[in-house]
Design a protein around this nucleic acid. Structure first.
Lengths: 120, 120
DNA sequence: ATCTTATATGCAGATATTGCTATATACTGA
DNA sequence: TCAGTATATAGCAATATCTGCATATAAGAT
């Protein structure tokens, strides 16, 4: 099988500390660039560039929603790989305080505005 | 958690077509360098270098047995990751024809000599 | 049209990786 | 000790990646 090339490309893409954190963040629900930028404390162009690498490797897909672009993991294959790497952390079913999504001060996206309870 | 760095380093190490094939080969049982070299149809120094990369990343460990050095996956964490990437292929319990270990013509290691039935 | 906000792209110096070849080391046996 | 086999390392040119910065695009609001 020469899925080896395909899978190796995927592993290479997520084999980077920042990019691994990104896909871990995307595991529970789609996030926009500004949210990731705030969560990682990295510049927007930098995050956007890392997202482009993940996107070109087929790890994530983007979906526009007005001015925001939300990214999510591309498929189950990726999800399994990320789970194997980061642990099968539980995601909030709908609104569970313990595993609730991080609403960030630095982020103005629709998901964060209005529910500003996150860490600064 | 800054396991991110550690895990990313592991993913980066196996995020390479040849190295991914190597860890996939090592999934069922330890193999020596000459066997991997024959199985991958790559020069001994080249394979040895890729093994060194995997070894330095903590993905595999080596064990000397006379003149041969056998490599195996380092731990369950690695096994899970490789399974997620390559599929949870069954390994022969002891001697099962279907999943039996590849005995290679180009390889003279103790595991291959005597049971030369593999593909050439 | 223009301004603002959100995101993407281009560029560039520093650094790392790739795959190869030549050579070195380590063990075994005579 | 010396030869033979198994494995490791050094060195190299080509290529790719990293990460910061400046700038470009795209959509919404005025």
């Amino acid at each position: 099988m020469d899925d080896y090339h395909r899978q190796a490309a995927m592993l290479k893409a997520i084999g980077h500390p920042i990019r691994l954190r990104i896909v871990d963040l995307l595991r529970c629900e789609p996030e926009c660039v500004c949210h990731l930028s705030a969560a990682l404390d990295k510049s927007q162009p930098y995050v956007s560039q890392q997202l482009a690498i993940l996107r070109n490797a087929g790890v994530i897909v983007d979906e526009r929603e007005g001015t925001n672009i939300f990214y999510r993991l591309a498929d189950e294959n990726v999800v399994r790989q990320v789970e194997a790497a980061c642990g099968a952390r539980a995601c909030a079913p709908q609104e569970d305080a313990a595993t609730a999504r991080q609403a960030l001060h630095g982020c103005n996206c629709p998901k964060c505005s209005g529910t500003l309870t996150g860490r600064g």
